[in-house]
Design a protein around this nucleic acid. Structure first.
Length: 760
RNA sequence: GGGCGGUUAGCUCAGUUGGUAGAGCACAGUGUUCACAUCGCUGGGGUCACUGGUUCAAGUCCAGUACCGCCCACCA
């Protein structure tokens, strides 16, 4: 044997042997009558590449899956990739631009989508191969893609059924609009970013010569002591550009300053629009000036206020968030904007902001400017401020669908590990808003709805069915695609063949455990719960949960504790660590740090340390081999007589029980650390050392017993370590006794607990 | 504004029913014919953030404080 394990050259060879043996196929090695054990992989972005988060996530899944497989369970680890609509479209657009191609809009929808498919074919296998480098033992023969034919059929069926049930509907309301990608996005795709900003105060003249007395000085108790006569109202805003769409000013009914003005009107400076002064609880006397301008078409609060007071909704921006005034009938209705205002037409919103503030100053209606820190919503992909925009979009009735999903977790049918994530889940699900699922993108599942000339919608799985419904009227398909997470929500059953009633669906659903990071509990886990419960039923029509356990692991963060992300460019490449230290070392590091509820800041030192651990056990095996310690058929650990051997049998029984218990409780770090301490601190430091007199001794009885015991104890170590360090253990399993069996198929140690007493 | 988590050795972190503080790395010394120098042996190093409480006993339970981080929240 060599002195060290050459991971770089061995890993590929070992992985190929596993695949040739079909070791990862669903049900491979299952005992007769075995229970199913199913995990669906959180599908990585098809054009992505492996980052630390994937490495952690898939290492933990692989540990569970290999462990269960050795126990003889009927294991399926279902792999696949996600089309990741907005992310992939962004990447491909960027690539096309970099290569000097015409833009997406120039080449047109069909040509662009073909380009994305080309891109997918070209780079789509990359991440799967990287998962193999990590040692992931998925059933690759069952690889799926969210846009393959079967999964697309599932999406269609789900959409049509939910539409017919009224759980998907079209609505004109304010949505989060991303002006960079020119698409709506869901609430979850909005990031609140704290920014230093300004609060501008504008003076809106009161109409019809109305004036009021505004308090300007106060005593210690806050009672006004001096007033001034004003013929204008001061409103504060962080977004001057939206003032063009103002249709009211709101004050609080109980605010003594403005009570007398309720029912009067004011005039929008430069625009000339007359606007009512309304009383609304949204107006907070403590904030700003207590009088708030209302822009129903460009602010979520104002939208609600507008509904309560039946205010006009005037949209003053286009899809790029450029000001649009020329020919904007609602804007022009009933007013005559000045030329200085009309010149803003076509300007970017932030450019318009500057010009409006300058104009206000020039014309004397700028009351003042305050510095302020406030949170500004940004698109999580585009990183530009999102614009609340009034459009027609498709929505899922999430509040209705959330109810059973909440119930099942409350009832304990689905259990979060650690448990405290359940509170996070409940809080979000109980306050869930309708889910905006339509995206004005090209890459994704196109919405199965067609419209006739009058705009009437026909929802069907095929154009033919829609045409039949329409009675021959000319139809146009809705151009939008679905949010990527819509197809992800079906993942636990669509990958098993639904809507076909496949044997796999029957056998492997509900899945056993979902292993995921907490960052996608809302995006993904919650929606799988909702959709799974709605579409999957048992024989008696009762809803079936998508998974029994949800193991939520920490995020691997960078040195500053920041979330690693492609866009931040702070990604540590796990493949570099694999190349340098071996996949086993990286896996063991991640497992040993996967304590619950804490972020992982990865230390390369530690990876090196566990590479050394692999070397350590390698050399222990080498020692065993040099001393002719070979497994003895029919060896009974309960019958050894030497004190030393009785002791190591006990220690081995103890660590086996400890590892088993840790894995059952998803305590990966306990399992890993316990094995490390046993192999290095017990087996190598003590057992190997004290075995030397016996192994080198003349007395054949004790010597042979020690040889057999050492071989047995080492075998147990290899088995217990295999889920964590599959490559080095597999290699040793073959080398030690020139075995032609694979460790991946070996039985998990079940050592009588009574033997553990001997450890004393 | 609401919620959650963290604060233990120089660094990265364990520490599940409360019972004399742990690991790896780093550091100091030392050892290579004897499985392993990707190693062995020896050693230094912590008032377990702070305050108070419960208890025979608190890193561990309770209350509060201070920093740090994350998530959620309608940008006057």
């Amino acid at each position: 044997m060599d002195k060290t394990f050459d991971a770089a050259s061995a890993e590929g060879r070992i992985y190929a042997r596993w695949e040739e043996a079909g070791a990862f196929r669903a049900g491979s090695g299952a005992r007769p009558g075995a229970e199913p054990f199913t995990i669906v992989i959180p599908p990585p972005n098809v054009t992505g590449s492996l980052h630390m988060g994937h490495a952690l996530n898939n290492t933990l899944q692989d540990i569970l899956v290999r462990w269960k497989r050795m126990q003889g369970a009927d294991v399926l680890w279902q792999p696949g990739t996600d089309h990741a609509g907005i992310a992939t479209q962004m990447v491909v657009e960027r690539e096309l631009a970099a290569a000097g191609n015409e833009s997406r809009r120039e080449m047109g929808r069909e040509a662009f989508v073909n380009k994305v498919w080309e891109w997918k074919e070209q780079s789509g296998g990359l991440i799967l191969n990287q998962l193999k480098r990590l040692g992931a033992s998925c059933d690759w023969s069952r690889d799926r893609f969210t846009m393959d034919d079967g999964l697309s059929a599932a999406v269609l069926k789900v959409f049509v059924q939910l539409y017919n049930e009224g759980l998907i509907y079209r609505d004109k309301r304010l949505v989060n609009w991303d002006p960079y990608f020119e698409t709506a996005i869901s609430d979850l795709e909005v990031e609140q970013v704290e920014e230093k900003g300004k609060l501008w105060r504008f003076r809106y003249p009161l109409a019809d010569g109305v004036t009021y007395r505004h308090p300007v000085e106060h005593d210690e108790d806050g009672n006004p002591t001096a007033w001034e006569e004003r013929d204008y109202l001061v409103v504060a805003t962080t977004r001057p550009e939206t003032y063009l769409g103002d249709t009211a000013v709101a004050v609080h009914a109980d605010d003594p300053r403005y009570a007398g003005l309720i029912g009067s009107e004011c005039v929008l400076p430069g625009v000339g629009r007359r606007m009512p002064i309304v009383a609304d609880e949204h107006a907070d006397p403590e904030k700003g000036t207590g009088a708030v301008k209302i822009t129903p078409a460009h602010d979520f609060n104002d939208f609600q206020v507008g509904k309560r007071h039946d205010l006009r909704q005037i949209n003053v921006m286009d899809a790029k968030a450029h000001i649009t005034l020329e020919g904007n009938a609602p804007f022009l209705q009933g007013c005559q904007p000045s030329p200085e205002i009309m010149v803003l037409d076509g300007h970017d919103r932030f450019d318009a902001r500057k010009r409006i503030v300058a104009l206000a100053e020039e014309q004397g209606w700028l009351d003042g400017i305050d510095e302020e820190v406030h949170v500004v919503p940004h698109g999580d992909r585009s990183k530009v401020p999102i614009e609340p925009w009034l459009t027609d979009q498709w929505f899922v009735d999430a509040p209705t669908m959330a109810k059973p999903a909440i119930e099942k977790v409350r009832a304990g049918e689905t259990r979060f590990v650690p448990r405290n994530w359940e509170n996070t889940y409940f809080r979000w699900m109980e306050n869930i808003e309708p889910w905006c699922i339509s995206r004005q993108l090209w890459w994704g599942h196109q919405i199965p709805v067609w419209y006739d000339d009058e705009g009437k919608a026909y929802c069907a799985e095929t154009e033919e069915e829609a045409a039949a419904q329409a009675g021959g009227r000319a139809l146009t398909r809705d151009p939008d695609v679905l949010d990527t997470w819509f197809s992800s929500a079906l993942w636990p059953f669509s990958t098993l063949g639904w809507p076909e009633q496949t044997p796999e669906l029957e056998r492997y659903y509900p899945t056993s455990v979902l292993v995921t990071g907490f960052d996608i509990i809302f995006f993904w886990v919650a929606r799988m719960m909702m959709f799974g419960l709605h579409f999957m039923k048992d024989g008696e029509g009762r809803p079936l949960i998508p998974f029994h356990d949800i193991y939520v692991h920490a995020l691997v963060r960078d040195a500053h504790g920041k979330k690693m992300s492609k866009s931040l460019g702070n990604v540590i490449d796990p493949l570099e660590l694999i190349e340098q230290y071996g996949a086993d070392a990286l896996r063991f590091t991640l497992a040993s740090m996967a304590a619950m509820g804490r972020d992982i800041k990865l230390s390369v030192n530690r990876v090196e340390g566990y590479r050394n651990f692999a070397t350590k056990i390698w050399n222990a095996a080498r020692f065993a081999e040099m001393n002719e310690c070979k497994p003895v058929a029919g060896f009974d650990p309960g019958k050894v007589e030497q004190t030393l051997n009785r002791w190591i049998v006990g220690e081995t029984a103890r660590v086996a029980a400890q590892t088993q218990a840790a894995l059952e409780g998803y305590r990966f770090n306990d399992a890993a650390n316990g094995l490390y301490a046993h192999v290095w601190g017990v087996f190598c430091d003590w057992y190997v050392e004290f075995s030397k007199p016996l192994l080198y001794g003349e007395d054949a009885g004790p010597r042979d017993e020690t040889r057999a015991t050492m071989a047995w104890a080492l075998d147990q170590c290899l088995k217990l370590l295999h889920p964590f360090m599959p490559f080095v253990t597999e290699e040793l399993w073959g080398q030690i006794a020139r075995r032609d069996t694979l460790l991946v198929h070996a039985d998990w140690p079940e050592i009588p607990e009574s033997l553990a007493d001997r450890a004393a």
